[in-house]
């Protein structure tokens, strides 16, 4: 019996489709060199973030690493704003300044998009700390990869969360590889979930290819945290179908392994479950998929037509309260700029 509120399953299937179609378009646009820098796709892992948001509230907090497009979409950031960010446009969710690895959306409680492995895990503690501080019953969902669990920041964060009983769920998206390094080659433990025990944090393993399993497990965890704040750890076993980033041929793994997971596809599975239960027809599925494809394509058009961030704004976001760039003039003419700088520091 699920313990926390849940969102409609057909809607969640639709969200997974949207994520997948968005990522496919992103991949294509990257190849067409419309997108620069590093770009990491989430294809295959959709059930994890979707299962998590299916049982949390819109005002709960989400924070993740650089494989972040799906998390923003799941939070409700529009496909347009996501694609525009990849294109580096002013209409992007980070105004084109962050790029693929740095998606932020304050309105939808998406706190990034963080590209230094492990560095955002302490931030999640901070988000959760603030919720507790203000007596809010929000939960913070902190996603990270299996590669992050060997960073010092991760360990310090887990201890802090346990010590201060912070309402945060650490969700390890274990897709078996950190770049080309398999979990067995990076981690001394037999299973990742044992990390939680070391910090006296309750933990569980979920099938990250199975939407319902992710959702139902998290549902109970969330209900427990809302009642009485505490951290929890969830290891979601999943798989990324694509390379680590767009430039990785993924030659460190076998075709058979990839095929095995593809056969266990999270979208196919939820579709089959819903169809079997009479909650979804083939026509309805096709309609949803068509709509997802249309939105992803539309997003490309939107991104293409959007303006670039203006050059004059280059200095606007270095400090709060606006630019403090000192005027390149002689000291005696410089006092206005100096006052501004002093005010900002």
């Amino acid at each position: 019996m699920p313990a926390a509120e849940q969102r409609d399953e057909v809607e969640m299937l639709w969200l997974m489709l949207l994520i997948r179609r968005f990522e496919e378009r992103a991949s294509q646009q990257y190849q067409a060199q419309k997108i620069g820098g590093f770009c990491h796709l989430y294809i295959g892992q959709e059930a994890v973030v979707t299962g998590a948001v299916a049982t949390t509230r819109f005002d709960d907090y989400v924070i993740t690493a650089y494989r972040d497009h799906a998390h923003a979409l799941a939070r409700g950031t529009s496909a347009n704003a996501c694609m525009a960010e990849l294109f580096g446009k002013d209409t992007g969710c980070s105004r084109g300044l962050g790029g693929s690895m740095h998606f932020f959306d304050k309105e939808h409680h998406m706190y990034g998009g963080h590209a230094i492995v492990g560095a955002h895990v302490p931030l999640a503690c901070g988000l959760a700390f603030a919720c507790k501080y203000r007596n809010e019953d929000r939960v913070t969902l902190c996603f990270f990869g299996d590669g992050a669990i060997n960073q010092g920041a991760f360990h310090e964060a887990l201890n802090l969360a346990a010590l201060f009983k912070l309402p945060v769920i650490f969700i390890c998206e274990n897709n078996l590889f950190a770049m080309g390094t398999s979990v067995e080659r990076s981690t001394s433990l037999k299973q990742i979930i044992d990390r939680a025990e070391g910090y006296d944090i309750p933990g569980c393993v979920v099938d990250g290819m199975n939407f319902r399993h992710v959702r139902d497990t998290l549902s109970e965890v969330v209900a427990s945290i809302r009642k009485d704040p505490h951290p929890a750890f969830v290891e979601a076993r999943t798989y990324r179908y694509r390379g680590h980033s767009m430039s990785d041929p993924a030659s460190y793994r076998t075709k058979e392994q990839l095929e095995k997971y593809r056969l266990d596809d999270p979208i196919t599975r939820l579709r089959a479950q819903l169809t079997r239960e009479g909650k979804l027809t083939n026509e309805k599925f096709d309609e949803l998929d068509k709509e997802a494809k249309r939105i992803a394509l539309e997003a490309v058009k939107f991104a293409e037509e959007s303006e670039e961030p203006p050059l004059e704004k280059l200095y606007d976001y270095t400090y709060a309260n606006g630019a403090v760039k000192a005027a390149p003039s002689l000291p005696k003419n410089n006092s206005a700029a100096e006052k501004k700088a002093a005010a900002a520091s």
């Binding site: 620069g36 980070s94 084109g96 300044l97 670039e308 961030p309 050059l311 280059l314």
Partner: peptide, 9 residues
């Protein structure tokens, strides 16, 4: 400034 992602910037 922190380095912006946008190519032109």
């Amino acid at each position: 400034v922190p380095i912006p992602y946008n190519e032109r910037l």
